[in-house]
Amino acid sequence: MSGPVAWETARRVGGLVAEGGVFGGGRALDERAWDRLREDFGWATEEAEALVVAETGLVPAEGPSRGEVLDRRAWVAQNLATFERLLTPVLERWPQRQLPGPLGAVQPELAGAELGLVLGWMARRVLGQYDLLVAERPGADPVSYVGPNVAGLEARFGFPPRRFRLWIALHEVTHRCQFTGVPWLRSYFLDLVEQALAEARPDPAKLLEALGRAAQAVRRGENPLAEAGVVGLVASKAQRDLLRRIQALMALLEGHGDVTMNRAAAERLPEAGWFAQVLEERRQRGNPLSRLLLQLTGLGAKLAQYRKGERFIEEVERAGGRELLARVWEGPALLPSWEEIEDPSAWVARVGGA
């Protein structure tokens, strides 16, 4: 065993959890259903790009968007490959054993199992994903859709498949148009990721400080995981500042994605409001284990942040129209800070007269 994480264990556990295990199984798709998913998402991805470009003016610079349909195991494997590529240089700086006694010998297996558990659980919830970190070269950046999750929701709620699939594609293709249609955004985001990884250091003293802050928050009646899950709890001040920059960017991009999706779907998809309501209720009704994982991973906080991003978009446009909002794409200096995401008028005051 080499390294702090047993990646093969993570893949094995992630695949088992994704396909069943503690979260229950699901109806298997036959080959005909897979063929229909591939055909529909091929069409939906192409159609979504045309609608998003018309709505935003952001034209992908690396060729047309391409959709791919994955099963849950493949989604876990794809994301684990990204994690391994990004985290291996960081983990090489960490001590090989941090736990005392016999636990130190199995620590890589424990870490792999924990990572697999989280990704396997996420694989049961994700509908679509555009992740430029998956791509190792320009143009190799497909928009991914998790077929069983999409088909399961359609069957459960009676969604019309082609319309629901186009609705999902609109949001994910918007992200590809953002990252490949704004010349500087891709490199800026990757630089933030590299900075975050460079700041990662194992420090037991900081963990104790974080536990102290968490205890104080609980005594004040606050949720110490509400801001960014466990990552926000153990981060140093410098790391929290960097995390805020990343959160502000992601809130902007997700808010812009939601607004674009809703506008592009307005005439084509009269069911869009129904789709959105059902998915929001699905998030709210999660079982206790799912709600805990949402908090631990910070995904619960992200959902609230994205709603703030949508409000930021709406308030900026209310103040200065789409012309003012378009200034966020001019360069990193015009991106909103987290404080400006929470108070859009501050961004309007800073940028509106510039």
Rank of each mutant, 00 (worst) to 15 (best):
L299S: 09
F179T: 02
E39Q: 11
R240P: 01
L249R: 04
G3V: 05
Q98W: 03
G232C: 01
A265G: 11
V218A: 14
N149I: 14
Y188E: 13
T88A: 15
R32A: 15
G26N: 06
A74M: 08
R97A: 15
P108L: 04
V118K: 06
L289S: 10
G42L: 02
P148T: 07
E68Q: 12
P138Q: 10
A77T: 11
A301E: 06
E47S: 13
S187V: 05
E19K: 05
L335Q: 08
T56K: 07
P100V: 10
T88K: 12
L324E: 08
H175A: 02
L335H: 03
A111S: 14
R156S: 10
V76Y: 08
T9E: 09
E49K: 09
V348I: 12
L293E: 00
W338N: 07
V126I: 15
W167V: 03
P102Q: 06
P60V: 10
A48L: 01
A346Y: 01
L51Y: 01
I246H: 04
L29W: 04
E172A: 03
E222P: 03
F164D: 00
A81G: 15
R240M: 03
A272M: 13
G21W: 07
R283Y: 14
S290V: 00
V328H: 09
E323N: 05
G229V: 05
W274E: 11
R165T: 06
A155Y: 00
P224L: 08
Q96I: 01
L70R: 10
G300C: 03
W167C: 01
V76H: 11
R291N: 04
R318T: 10
A226D: 03
A81F: 11
A276L: 13
G273P: 09
G139F: 12
V17W: 02
L334M: 05
R176S: 05
E68F: 11
W274I: 02
Q239C: 00
Q247V: 02
A235Q: 06
V59H: 11
D203C: 08
G232V: 00
G181A: 09
R201K: 15
L233E: 00
V90I: 13
Q216C: 01
H256P: 00
E8I: 04
E19M: 07
E271S: 03
E55Y: 05
M122R: 09
E47Y: 09
A6G: 05
N149E: 11
Q284W: 07
S345C: 02
H256R: 07
G15Q: 06
P142F: 05
